[in-house]
C-alpha cells in the first residue's frame, strides 16, 4: 500500500518536474534553433517589460487605496533612486504604515 503510494508520488514528481523544466528550457531552445526574423526579434524585445506590466496590473486590480498609494510612491522612489532595494524598502514601509494606521 505504502509502496504503491510512493510509486505514484514518484511518478507525479517526475512528470511535474518534466513539465516545469520543459517550460523553463523550451522557449530558449526554440529561439536558439532559429535565426529570428526582425519581427520576432522586435517581439522579444518588448516581452520583458510587457510581462512585468502583466504581473503588476492584476496584482493591483481590485486592491484599495493603501496599495495604490504605495505603488505610486514605490514607482516615484524607483524613478528618483534608480535603486531596487531602496524603492522596495520605500514600498514596504509605505504599505505597512498605511495598513496599520490609515486604511
Amino acid at each position: 500500500m505504502l509502496e504503491d503510494g510512493n510509486l505514484v508520488f514518484a511518478a507525479c514528481i517526475i512528470l511535474m518536474t518534466a513539465a516545469t523544466y520543459f517550460t523553463r528550457a523550451g522557449g530558449l531552445f526554440i529561439i536558439s534553433k532559429i535565426t529570428p526574423p526582425p519581427r520576432i526579434s522586435a517581439f522579444l524585445n518588448h516581452v520583458p517589460a510587457s510581462i512585468l506590466v502583466a504581473i503588476i496590473v492584476p496584482s493591483l486590480a481590485g486592491k484599495g487605496p493603501a496599495e495604490f498609494i504605495s505603488a505610486a510612491i514605490t514607482a516615484a522612489a524607483a524613478v528618483f533612486t534608480r535603486n531596487l532595494i531602496l524603492s522596495l524598502l520605500t514600498g514596504l514601509i509605505c504599505i505597512s504604515t498605511l495598513r496599520a494606521f490609515v486604511f
Partner: peptide, 15 residues
C-alpha cells in the same frame, strides 16, 4: 504580498 508588486514595479520603471 505587496513586496513582489513593489519589486516588479521598480524593475518596470527601470525599463
Amino acid at each position: 504580498d505587496f513586496a513582489f508588486t513593489a519589486v516588479f514595479l521598480s524593475l518596470l520603471i527601470f525599463f
